[in-house]
Amino acid sequence: MTNPRSGMVDWDLAVSIGSRLAGDGPTVTWSEAAEVVEELRAGADRSTGLVRDFTGLDAPANTAPVVVVDRAGWVQANADGFATVLAPIVTKLTGDKQPSRIAHAVGSRVTGAEVGGLLGFLAGKVLGQFDPFFEPSGRLLLVAPNIVHVERELEVDPHDFRLWVCLHEETHRVQFTATPWLGGHLLGEMQSIADSLEPTGFLDEGLGRITEALKGGARGGNLLEAVSTPEQKEILDRVTGVMSLLEGHADVVMDGLGPSVIPSVADIRKKFTKRRKGVGVLDRTLRRLLGLDAKMAQYRDGAIFVRAVVDKAGMAEFNAIWECPENLPTKAEIGDPNAWISRVL
């Protein structure tokens, strides 16, 4: 069940709308579906040792389960995660105020519908995701129908592609389980954003900034930036640095291991990189407004950062980055690896 802590969002409605919009995905037989699920679980299990040997990060056994889900399962999991992440912000905005039952019902359904639309759009695109906020140690989600859809669309070897996805996503699981403070650190950053909020006038000002972002969408703005104050942007810059590290590190691991265990990895990488840019005007517009273009930049910039540090200092020295929050790179250091080396190493 969804987490009920956020009364500002009707999470049940969000899940219902998101699941309907996401659809079921490609048509497969029961036997094909069972084969995909079994292969993804085996691929994730195999990837654990490969990632450990390549990175030197040793994740404790029997933590953060691997869960193969359909699109509706991904929507449910992310609604639960959003409820946890947004709880500090909702608490700050609502405080002790108790809106009327009508206002509460109408408002929560409106936001529930909006969140559901967002989840429905993303549920058809995400291949895998590590959920660091699932108690007690997180969980790895692999979205089977999307993986099948993409491997068919790209016309790549399905077995190679499934292991390729598992390598990337299992790296995220290892990052968080080998660095147990990391999930709490990210949740703490959300608390910092909540602490920076001023409830009075927030909604009016936020809606005004959203309107301006929509008008200026062609200039590359996104909605997250639109509703952020300068103080909040500083926090978001720190989060961007961390997310760039995580995504770039996973890409480096995936590319480093790929040639030795995935025969067709070069063909997969070439086709998948092209696909990441989005297809169609509507898809590209939504990606820009939702900040997904920025996420693509995180893969690219983070990978450049990780490769630069590893090439100069070696993987063992690079792993100092996982020792404490102070060693994480800033957004500026992602673009200047030598600055991070000078500061930390």
Score class of each variant (00 low, 15 high):
Gln98Arg: 14
Gly112Asp: 05
Arg162Cys: 04
Val37Ala: 08
Ala64His: 02
Val148Pro: 07
Leu93His: 07
Ser192Glu: 05
Ala123Met: 08
Pro4Gln: 14
Gly112Val: 07
Ile147Ala: 01
Asp53Ala: 15
Phe161Cys: 11
Trp181Ile: 04
Gly18Thr: 05
Gly120Thr: 14
Leu207Pro: 06
Lys125His: 13
Asp131Gln: 02
Lys312Asn: 04
Leu289Asp: 01
Val67Asp: 13
Phe202His: 09
Ile268Val: 03
Leu118Val: 00
His149Leu: 13
Gly7Cys: 10
Glu169Ile: 04
Lys97Phe: 11
Val252Phe: 04
Ala320Tyr: 04
Val67Gly: 08
Ser137Gln: 12
Asp237Asn: 14
Thr240Gly: 02
Pro259Arg: 15
Gly116Phe: 03
Glu326Cys: 14
Phe82His: 09
Leu141His: 04
Asn78Phe: 13
Val115Glu: 02
Ala308Pro: 14
Asp160Cys: 09
Gly241Ile: 10
Lys295Tyr: 15
Asp293Thr: 15
Asp80Arg: 05
Gln298Gly: 09
Lys97Ser: 14
Ala294Gly: 14
Val344Tyr: 08
Val67Met: 12
Lys97Pro: 03
Pro263Ile: 05
Ala22Cys: 10
Glu169Ala: 05
Arg71Ser: 07
Leu122Asn: 05
Val309Tyr: 00
Trp340Lys: 02
Gly302Tyr: 05
Gly124Leu: 09
His104Gln: 14
Glu212Trp: 07
Glu32His: 06
Ala297Leu: 15
Glu114Trp: 12
Phe54Met: 11
Val174Cys: 05
Ile268Lys: 00
Ala103Ile: 14
Ser19Phe: 06
Leu203Thr: 14
Arg343Pro: 06
Thr2Arg: 06
Leu167Ile: 07
Phe272Glu: 11
Glu155Leu: 12
Leu86Trp: 09
Lys92Pro: 11
Leu292Glu: 01
Asn3Met: 04
Lys274His: 09
Leu197Ser: 06
Ser196His: 10
Gly256Leu: 01
Val344Trp: 03
Gly112Phe: 05
Asp10Ile: 07
Pro263Val: 05
Gly112Leu: 05
Leu163Ile: 06
Ser196Arg: 11
Val126Thr: 10
Asp237Ile: 04
Ser196Pro: 10
Thr63Lys: 12
Val156Pro: 08
Leu182Gly: 06
Phe161Trp: 11
Pro65Phe: 00
Ala297Cys: 10
Gln98Tyr: 06
His172Gly: 02
Asp157Gly: 05
Arg46Thr: 15
Ala14Cys: 00
Asp195Phe: 10
Met296Pro: 06
Pro99Gly: 05
Asp267Met: 13
Asp293Gly: 13
Gly248Met: 02
Ser342Glu: 14
Val51His: 00
Gly241His: 09
Asp96Tyr: 08
Glu114His: 12
Leu290His: 01
Lys277Asn: 13
Asp283Glu: 15
Glu231Asp: 11
Glu323Leu: 09
Asn62Leu: 11
Met243His: 09
Gln232Asp: 09
